[in-house]
Design a binder for these strands. Sequence first.
DNA 1: GTTCGACGGTTTACATGTAAGGTGGCCGTC
DNA 2: GACGGCCACCTTACATGTAAACCGTCGAAC
Lengths: 222, 222
Amino acid sequence: MVGVNEKTAARTRVADAVYERLREMIFTGELSPGARLSVPALAESLDVSRSPVRDAVLRLVQERLASEEPRRGAIVASVGLAELVSIYEIREVLEGLAARLAVENAGRKLVRALKEALDEHEAATRTADLAASTEADLRFHRLIREAAGNPEVIRLLDDVQTQVRLAMRTTTVTAGPRQAIDDHRAILTAIESGDAVAAEQAARAHIFRLRSVLLRQLEGGE
Amino acid sequence: MVGVNEKTAARTRVADAVYERLREMIFTGELSPGARLSVPALAESLDVSRSPVRDAVLRLVQERLASEEPRRGAIVASVGLAELVSIYEIREVLEGLAARLAVENAGRKLVRALKEALDEHEAATRTADLAASTEADLRFHRLIREAAGNPEVIRLLDDVQTQVRLAMRTTTVTAGPRQAIDDHRAILTAIESGDAVAAEQAARAHIFRLRSVLLRQLEGGE
DNA sequence: GTTCGACGGTTTACATGTAAGGTGGCCGTC
DNA sequence: GACGGCCACCTTACATGTAAACCGTCGAAC
């Protein structure tokens, strides 16, 4: 034995770090939609060589956080309202699926955790703590999809959320905090009662309402 | 097979060609699940440098045709029965969504094209022409999702199909040709009558039956 | 006979060189 | 002053160099 094995060592890929950094820059607005992702320029500003930057940019492109045209390089993607509506159509059926599957292998623990998230969501809303409210909201959804036991659903919903976050740089979608909590309560009730079909319906209805908000924005203002 | 036909002439990217070639090698079995994707070895055998091969392999990894462990390289992915079930759960709701959306902006042309595909499917089944039957089957589904008018749905269902093709190297899933045709007819009827909800239900039921076949395989003979 | 550790070969991951293509600016022309 | 072609710069895409990590093997010690 050569000594203690450091688990911290495993994660040191420069390309991964660059990828994370670029994601962060996109989500914080340091890189706006449309901004050019010049590999040499980024390499210099991040003080690494071009190779890991290239890998990271390719990864962003394939996750559609950036778009590229051959020989012209990549730019930060922008997600318009119409695309966001398309994404919410997908999110609707995927969240429905997650809720249905969650019922099928749900336990007491899930219900308890969901209740807790919902309570915190409500409390944060009462005190107008936006950050905590958002966190509890996201956690509620995350708990359900992780309980679904289908790794593909988790991955796809993570993808959806990534696109939504990007779109949020220019748009917001909320049906009002009270509506969200009521919707969540309906989902929780269905899960608690073990009614998979009702849970699917409730989850779909929740996303459907959010999508309706988007559609009104699409037709009305802007 | 998303959009290979860009009309711009000078799309001679070596990395793209390598990517296509590797995909082909995976689907034809030239590269079996588990096979190592050694960048230097592939570069030599394809007679290009390591860079485009590296790009292509990264792309495969990201599309989950290959899996990688850091510092250990990539191998051709294998899709087991359990994963295939997960994929079909997703396919169920996505095909349902596509059918619903297709109704919402369907025209006469769609119905006619679907009828044609269904007729050919039936004819090919009668003459036991497996290739033509499969082609007509795929075309039926493709027509619907392209009519959905939601590019994300198309992309996700293409992804699903890629995974299914990979899984098909070791598994087959069919509910029997008659069942498939009956299912398709039910979908067509619902679309023709303009009943979006019925179309969604019919499409979901179709995939649900295929998934049931998988589940029986999963429980029964290994 | 089994276990352990050193060694060679192979590969990854990062760095860097370079030809060809694209862009935008600049200048001359009308 | 507007327009069009030329040129210089920058970038992409491919090629290649290289340190360090990993794998399998082999041999020695117990």
